[in-house]
């Protein structure tokens, strides 16, 4: 079935994106903490906690999606993360902060909040498609 293939590709792509996003942050948590701090949302210490935990959450959920295990759980968390990221980016735009989104590789070329926001909207749509298909599949089992 074409539709199944398409959703599978979406699922693996989405998982891959999150694994790809997680690795540089795990390797360089200090740089990521700097990126988080640049949003000026969290108090000092919590920037580090976020920088320590978020990448592993992205990694685990990415792996779940790629392998097709516990897809709903992985997709729900990824969807929630995406929403949080979008709120943070929107708040950066509203406050006129000229910062790098810190989404993928830390440092290097700057990705503006607007572009990151648009990208996250695409990821959110992908997540919704994966979740929708999961629900249909779960219903078909019975």
């Amino acid at each position: 079935m074409k539709r199944i293939d398409f959703v599978m590709v979406l699922r693996i792509a989405l998982g891959g994106v999150f694994i790809y996003a997680a690795i540089p942050k795990i390797v360089d948590p200090v740089a990521f903490a700097g990126s988080v701090a640049a949003y000026r949302i969290l108090p000092y210490f919590w920037n580090y906690v976020a920088a320590a935990v978020l990448p592993f959450l992205e990694l685990i959920c990415g792996v779940l999606l790629v392998l097709g295990i516990r897809v709903r759980t992985g997709a729900l968390i990824i969807g929630a993360l995406n929403l949080v990221f979008m709120v943070a980016l929107a708040s950066a735009i509203v406050r006129g902060l000229d910062i790098d989104c810190g989404c993928f590789r830390q440092g290097g070329e700057k990705t503006t909040p607007w572009i990151a926001l648009a990208r996250d909207a695409v990821f959110l749509a992908m997540t919704a498609a994966v979740l929708r298909y999961e629900r249909i599949r779960a219903a078909q089992r019975f």
């Binding site: 906690v49 320590a52 935990v53 978020l54 592993f56 959450l57 990694l59 959920c61």
Partner: peptide, 14 residues
């Protein structure tokens, strides 16, 4: 469970 696991790993790693 997944969030807990990520927290555990993240805190241990850092």
């Amino acid at each position: 469970l997944v969030v807990f696991l990520a927290t555990l790993l993240g805190v241990a790693w850092n």
